[in-house]
Structure formats: structure tokens, C-alpha cells
Nucleic acid binder design. Structure first.
Lengths: 185, 185
DNA sequence: AAGCCCATGTAACTGGTTACATGATTCT
DNA sequence: AGAATCATGTAACCAGTTACATGGGCTT
């Protein structure tokens, strides 16, 4: 039921349209925390309305519907957040591949590790820009800038990917490659 | 089709029983890369056999079946590994919660961050022990110790969780809590 | 008026979970 | 004999994807 709780969480800060919520997923949630597509979000919003967790507070142009939390929904969200979970199952195809590296020949691993570094660095650049933007818009107020928290997590994760791949590539260098005893250059 | 490829990857190092494969998931894959339970693994192995990706190479005690890769399966695995993916969707309930922190009151966040630190530190201790074990068993041979690669990734991920939570808690300290203007101590 | 983005939805399918079910072997 | 672990499976259900489908409103 994580999609449901993710939607409740987004609505905690105020009413949003379905389209809006979908955008939130695309921008940040889908990348690091929880992926969802519109064809899953819209039906879920309908079910949540039926279950009394949210309600339509406005209907705008182009058939847009603005959803807001009901009291029940807000309570459900807080209950979920405050209930500890042991170890939640993770699914990341990228990480799975890293774990499966050993099934390749040593020579084939290097380009894959290089790809990880390249992609991670692109992500780092993107997040650096985002963080700069957030920091510039932040006036020292009474609430912390939470978008900054998520961005920081994303940044550190990308750095981890990069650093791990560089470390792994370094480890590979300590072992002979298939043509190291027959250097052609 | 990631479960399928995860199973192929595990079988790349040699034949295994279903029970054995399931154990591999429980130990490491499920925690950091890809979760799967036995009730999903067994039917998938049957389908993969039907599709000619793997085959039963032995049947042992207690009805156990040992599966091995076919040539087709090995090719399929390599194709999958060597085909680049752009950004694969991620799903982690734990990370989702971190992203949803802002929907709580500042005072409620701190215990959650403390939990993250505690759990991450338990994971670090576990992985430290695992790595020591791997290193002790490693004789400088011709192939790198790949279990070490996965363990290193897990370790760094746990450290990231801990460090981020500590950083976030520090950020919270810079903002007034609901009773900071009325200190009871 | 053409093209783009806004905005929502459905249908058929595949992926994955939870609970149920069974029996063999080993250890104490 | 009883408990734990090995070992595999099925059935009903829920979660999520892919492809299809539609139309309103805004900009040039």
C-alpha cells in the first residue's frame, strides 16, 4: 500500500490535482524512492476517495480534479509514518545488475562500471543545480526546507554509486585481465 | 523480468536448487537489490524451464530439483547485462518514508531519524563482520572476490543512511521546536 | 488551424504477495 | 517422539505496466 501512503503524504501539504501529484512522482519520488505512473495513480485516487481517505475539493478546467485529505486520510498517513518497519523489501534493477557483475568476464565489467560513473555524475550535476536553487529560495524561517532533505539524499546516493564503481574498477585492476599476459600494445 | 534475470545471474556460477536460490535472495539480494519470495521463485523457475532458459540437471532428496543454465539462458543473461538501461524505477518503502518526513511535525521527525541511525548501524556491524569473513577466506587468486563487491555496496549504503539521518537531525536542530520557547528543563 | 501540453481515464496483461498446504529428513 | 529445517508447490488476490483512448485549453 505504499503508493497510497505516498499520495497521502503529498496531500499533507495541501490539495493537489491528480496531474500535479503525478508530476511530483516524475520529478523526485520516482527516481529515488517510489516509482508510479499516471495509469496507476488515477485509479488509486478514485479508490482512495471511495475509501474516504481523500475527497474532491475542487473541479477545474479540462476536467481536472483537486483532491484534499479527509481527517481519516491524515490519520492513516500519520499512523503509517509512525509505525516502525523492520526491513522493507527493495527493488532496483540497477543495483541488481551491480550485484550480478561477477557473472560476466572481467573485461566486460569495466565498461559497465564506467557507465555507472557517467550516469551518477550526470545525476550529481543535476542535483547540485537543484540544491543551489533550493538554497537560494530558502529564507531562514521557522520550517526547514524539506525539498533540501530529499535532494541531499539523492545527491549522496549518486555519490555512493560513483564512488563504489570507481572503487570496484580499482579492485579489478589488481587482477590480471584476459590479455594481460599477452599485451598487444 | 528482473526476477528472471536475477535467477539466471545466480545460475551463471553453476547449478543450484530452488531452495538454494531462494536462500541467496534472503541473504543479500533481497536486502539491497531485488526482493523475491519462494512463492514467486518456484513458479518462475518452472516457467523458465518451459521457456528453455534453464533445465533440471539433477533431482535430489526431499524432492529437490537442481537447475542449470541452458545455452539460451546464458545468452539471455549476457544480453540483459550488456544492454544499457537509462533510469530504472526504484521502489523502497524506507526511502519513501524519508521523503515524506516533512509531512510530520518537527518533533515527530527526530525519533524516526534516530531509528534510521540505529538500524543502519546494526546493518553496518553485520556487513563489517561479513566483509572480514570474506577477506579472511580470500587468497589472492586470479578472480576478484565478488561477494566483497556486493558487501561493499551494502556497507556504503548503510553508511549513507546513517550519515544522512545524522545530517538531517542536525539541520532540524537549527529550527525551533514547538516547545523551544517554553523549555521545561 | 495546427501543434503542444494539460488532464484523465480504461483494458488486458504481467508481476508479486499472502495464506494455505504437504511431506521428507535431521537433530535432540 | 517432537521440533526444526529442508524443499516445493498452489490459489486467490492485489499491485503495477503497457498500450490504447479521449478531449479541453493555450499559444503561435
Amino acid at each position: 500500500m505504499s503508493l497510497r501512503h505516498a499520495l497521502l503524504g503529498l496531500l499533507m501539504e495541501g490539495p493537489h490535482t491528480g496531474y500535479d501529484l503525478r508530476g511530483r512522482f516524475e520529478q523526485s519520488l520516482s527516481r529515488y524512492a517510489w516509482h508510479a505512473s499516471h495509469s496507476h495513480i488515477y485509479p488509486e485516487l478514485r479508490k482512495m476517495t471511495e475509501d474516504g481517505l481523500i475527497e474532491i475539493v475542487d473541479e477545474g478546467a479540462r476536467g481536472s480534479k483537486t483532491y484534499g485529505l479527509t481527517e481519516h486520510g491524515a490519520r492513516e498517513f500519520r499512523d503509517w509514518m509512525l509505525t516502525p518497519i523492520k526491513d522493507s523489501p527493495v527493488r532496483s534493477e540497477q543495483t541488481l545488475r551491480l550485484f550480478m557483475l561477477s557473472a560476466l568476464e572481467v573485461d566486460e565489467m569495466r565498461p559497465l562500471l564506467d557507465d555507472v560513473v557517467t550516469q551518477a555524475e550526470a545525476g550529481i550535476a543535476e542535483l547540485d543545480a537543484a540544491i543551489e536553487h533550493i538554497d537560494a529560495a530558502t529564507t531562514s524561517g521557522d520550517k526547514p526546507p524539506f525539498a533540501r532533505f530529499a535532494a541531499e539524499f539523492g545527491l549522496r546516493y549518486r555519490q555512493l554509486q560513483r564512488d563504489w564503481a570507481l572503487w570496484a574498477a580499482g579492485e579489478l585492476d589488481r587482477y590480471p585481465t584476459s590479455d594481460s599476459d599477452n599485451p598487444s600494445a
